[in-house]
Write a protein that binds this DNA or RNA. Structure first.
Lengths: 103, 103
DNA sequence: ATTGTTCATCGCAAATATACGATGAATATT
DNA sequence: AATATTCATCGTATATTTGCGATGAACAAT
């Protein structure tokens, strides 16, 4: 792919897009809602909850982690996941700012 | 692709994911911010503003339109775009509901 | 030492997204 | 009629995403 015009979006636009992209799949929305409702949980609980295979759930968790929306702490042989409160608040503010630009 | 477990996400999760996905690219964030700041605009103005080709801008506009976030009205030989106030409010509420689940 | 549990990662296939140039459709101007 | 403007769409190339089964790593329990 070529980029004749050099791409230079603003930092905030890139960050907001990254958060939005992470939220852009029903499975990940469901995972986050589940996480928010239970405070913390293990991968296995999500697998039981959702209609997708363990490998796929693990991949979605990885993406949410990469986006910064969740965190995982090892608790052998499991991994306890929770929402990252700081980034959660940050992304909440990002969306709020975007939407209040019009309403 | 195969789907051994039948996929059945909740309606709201699907809708929120669709809005989020539409917001999941810096160019589309930039387009929406520009649209919000100018009320309405033509495709050409966005092409001047953003570092991407006309065909690509048009495609992003199409995706935003498919997601329901913007509308376009023909004004020959141009198309005037504006944010869809109703769906904008709706998606704003969706995100608000998601984020307030934790904070 | 062997087995079981839990989860990440690898390797693969198919689908979707991103970007562009070229072309087409619609209309206004000459 | 011919030309110019504006924008959508087509065709194409490449990258990313989504999903799965299989395997591996880490630890617990036998």
């Amino acid at each position: 792919m070529s980029h004749p015009k050099s791409i230079n979006y603003k930092e905030d636009e890139i960050n907001l897009a990254r958060y939005a992209k992470a939220l852009g799949h029903p499975a990940r929305i469901a995972i986050l809602k589940f996480l928010a409702s239970t405070d913390t949980c293990f991968c296995g609980e999500i697998v039981d909850e959702l209609p997708i295979a363990q490998a796929t759930v693990s991949q979605h968790l990885k993406e949410l982690k990469n986006a910064g929306l969740i965190r995982g702490s090892i608790e052998p042989p499991k991994v306890r996941y929770c929402i990252d409160p700081e980034n959660w608040k940050k992304s909440s503010r990002f969306f709020e700012d975007l939407f209040k630009k019009l309403i």
